[in-house]
């Protein structure tokens, strides 16, 4: 057990009144062998991962995978059956009061006091987090500016759109300037513009404010744009975690194609007749380190075992063989691909 986990030891995020940036390399969020059982149901089963300051981590999994349960434990709303979770080095089980100071949690559906206006709502939570006087007023002002809710400050909450409500929810999480943000499906139900705007705000939290953000979402294309890393969970178990690149490598390693890359090529129009396409397929199959060739009307998709040099040499050989290549590029593995390959669609 590290020193920071001992009672009375200054936590990673603690620095007088204001939460500070922890030294790079120390995890600000950690789940360690976390278990949560509901009777016979293993909602969370030995989940472990870490996230660091300035990092946006995607928490991905199908419905009922254990994302929300894990996040609720992190937010001190639930208690693990075994294992523990740490925010800025403090256990969520042993020191929930301390953890709450460092943590901003946005649940998937959260309540709002409909009869309050925006500024009263933020003012209440600023007071609830112990902010007094000018600190409170400054915090409200800062949140209003950051979430661009300044113009709606006096508007009753019940009249806000879904997108604005989500911004307000994010503002509420930010009011006490926490080091770690846990956001459960923050983009659910938002229109495309609101999603893009919220995504930008979340990105800024990590890049500009150096916060750790753990975010769950079903919209994987969006997550891949803002996440540095991800943890994929299914049936309560973590299947993969790390940076997006690491997850893809893990996945390739798992299927025994550690150094392979997926490539796509397209023949030039007018020179992509069936005969040429057949000749290309035959030619590719004869090449060393090439496999999994799939052809479709002047296009080819295949796997190449090797690095950039092997890829360049293959292109040179293709051109020498007289093929009119219009496109030749490696297929980028999306987070969605990784997710689909790693998960098995198990539901509990």
């Amino acid at each position: 057990m590290s020193e920071s986990e001992q009672p009375g030891v200054k936590s990673v995020c603690e620095n007088g009144d204001a939460p500070a940036t922890p030294p790079r390399g120390e995890a600000t969020l950690e789940l360690r062998h976390l278990h949560r059982f509901f009777g016979r149901l293993k909602a969370v089963d030995d989940v472990s991962f870490k996230a660091y300051a300035g990092q946006v981590m995607g928490f991905i999994g199908p419905n009922g995978a254990g994302k929300t349960t894990s996040m609720r434990i992190l937010a001190t709303l639930d208690l693990p059956t075994a294992g523990d979770a740490f925010i800025c080095g403090d256990s969520v089980v042993d020191y929930p009061d301390r953890v709450r100071k460092y943590l901003g949690f946005m649940p998937d559906s959260f309540g709002r006091y409909g009869d309050m206006n925006v500024v009263e709502f933020l003012d209440f939570y600023a007071r609830a987090y112990g902010l007094r006087g000018d600190r409170r007023r400054d915090a409200i002002e800062h949140v209003l500016v950051f979430t661009e809710l300044r113009k709606l400050a006096e508007k009753p909450i019940k009249t806000l759109s879904k997108g604005m409500s989500q911004r307000l929810g994010l503002g509420r999480c930010l009011i006490h300037d926490p080091q770690v943000m846990v956001l459960d499906e923050p983009a659910a139900g938002l229109d495309p513009r609101a999603r893009v705007e919220l995504r930008e705000l979340i990105r800024l939290l990590a890049t500009e404010m150096n916060k750790t953000v753990l975010i769950s979402s079903h919209i994987l294309t969006e997550l891949s744009e803002i996440c540095d890393s991800a943890a994929i969970i299914e049936a309560g178990r973590i299947l993969a975690h790390g940076t997006i690149e690491e997850i893809q490598q893990q996945q390739r390693r798992a299927v025994g194609r550690q150094s392979s890359r997926s490539l796509l090529l397209r023949l030039a129009r007018g020179r992509d007749d069936a005969t040429t396409t057949d000749r290309l397929e035959k030619w590719l199959l004869e090449q060393p380190f090439v496999g999994h060739v799939q052809m479709a009307a002047g296009k080819a998709a295949f796997e190449l075992e090797g690095d950039d040099k092997a890829q360049t040499e293959l292109l040179q050989r293709l051109l020498s063989a007289g093929f009119a290549i219009a496109e030749f590029h490696s297929k980028s593995h999306s987070l969605e691909d990784a997710f689909m390959n790693i998960t098995q669609g198990i539901t509990q």
């Binding site: 937010a75 001190t76 709303l77 009061d97 709450r100 100071k101 943590l103 949690f105 649940p107 559906s109 959260f110 309540g111 709002r112 006091y113 409909g114 939570y125 609830a128 987090y129 112990g130 509420r172 006490h176």
Partner: peptide, 16 residues
């Protein structure tokens, strides 16, 4: 109504 409106959880994770 704190429970009805789902605001109780937000209260309970504040410093209150």
């Amino acid at each position: 109504s704190e429970r009805d409106q789902n605001t109780f959880e937000l209260l309970s994770i504040s410093a209150l």
